[in-house]
């Protein structure tokens, strides 16, 4: 019985610690975003206001709505295309026999683990050359390449669970691989596609280094870069604006994490552990 009591104590301590450590900084962000000034722990009093939110949406020079629009378009486009290409290749790898299969899969997986910095220098020169700096496509294409391996890996684990007999039956009925893919494999793997899409969206929405180097202004700059480069008129850090902008841009991501938790966790585990 001592065992059970001990277990309960640990569990309670764990729950308290997790809630504090994971949630408190996040709540701090929300609190500051609704506060007149960020320095009330230094002696002032907390006075609630909506001014920060109004300002970031209305002050033209801050460009926050433009950043948000850029981020949404770039993330949705890149994760959708990556899901389609990832789906095709995952199906090809799980169904066709050919030489060099292992090289493609392991190569793609290794590529996704390359440090971004060892790609971005060359990309910058390359995109300067073809005039892609500060454009949507200048970010969408590298994001697709960088997130493809994750899509590939998640979808492969779904396709490999479809029994081979279904394919064979369809083949005997005269269906081409393309038809089997679109009529059989994709429909039964829709949860996998949703999983992959959500994870890739989160990756693209949060990405910082590529966006920092490959964009120059509001025409293509994304939210993370905007939040990183927010400057006050006199060089001070405008904490109210930063936290309000953060709170707004976190909303879609938190909705995903809370309401599509199952898909996110499934994608995460299937993306980094085998099968």
């Amino acid at each position: 019985m001592k065992d059970k009591a001990l277990r309960r104590i640990f569990l309670c301590l764990g729950i308290v610690f997790i809630s504090l450590f994971f949630l408190a900084p996040f709540l701090w962000m929300i609190l500051i975003s609704f506060s007149q000034s960020p320095d009330f722990p230094g002696g002032g009093a907390f006075s609630p206001t909506l001014k920060n939110f109004r300002d970031i949406l209305e002050i033209k020079t801050l460009r926050f709505p433009a950043y948000l629009k850029n981020s949404l378009i770039i993330s949705i486009m890149s994760s959708m295309i990556a899901c389609i290409i990832g789906g095709l290749s995952a199906y090809g790898i799980s169904r066709f026999r050919f030489r060099g299969k292992m090289i493609i899969v392991l190569g793609a997986l290794a590529l996704s683990m390359f440090p971004q910095i060892s790609i971005v220098g060359y990309l910058f020169k390359f995109m300067s050359g073809i005039g892609w700096i500060n454009t949507y496509k200048g970010l969408i294409f590298p994001y697709i390449a960088y997130s493809l391996p994750l899509a590939l890996w998640i979808l492969m684990s779904y396709f490999s669970r479809i029994p081979g007999e279904i394919d064979e039956a369809a083949q005997i009925d005269g269906a081409s691989p393309w038809q089997i893919f679109t009529k059989v494999a994709v429909p039964v793997s829709l949860p996998g596609f949703l999983s992959a899409f959500l994870l890739l969206f989160m990756f693209a929405f949060n990405e910082f280094l590529f966006a920092l180097l490959l964009t120059t202004d509001y025409r293509a700059r994304t939210v993370p870069v905007g939040i990183a480069l927010f400057q006050g008129l006199h060089g001070e850090i405008p904490w109210g604006y930063i936290m309000a902008a953060s709170a707004v841009s976190c909303t879609p991501l938190i909705l995903i994490a809370v309401f599509a938790q199952r898909y996110v966790i499934q994608g995460l585990t299937r993306g980094s552990l085998k099968g």
């Binding site: 994971f22 701090w28 949060n206 953060s246």
Partner: peptide, 16 residues
């Protein structure tokens, strides 16, 4: 709740 810090942009976490 555990997923929240991971789901939001690293830049936002850094700012906090």
């Amino acid at each position: 709740m555990i997923l929240i810090p991971w789901a939001i942009p690293s830049v936002v976490g850094a700012r906090i």
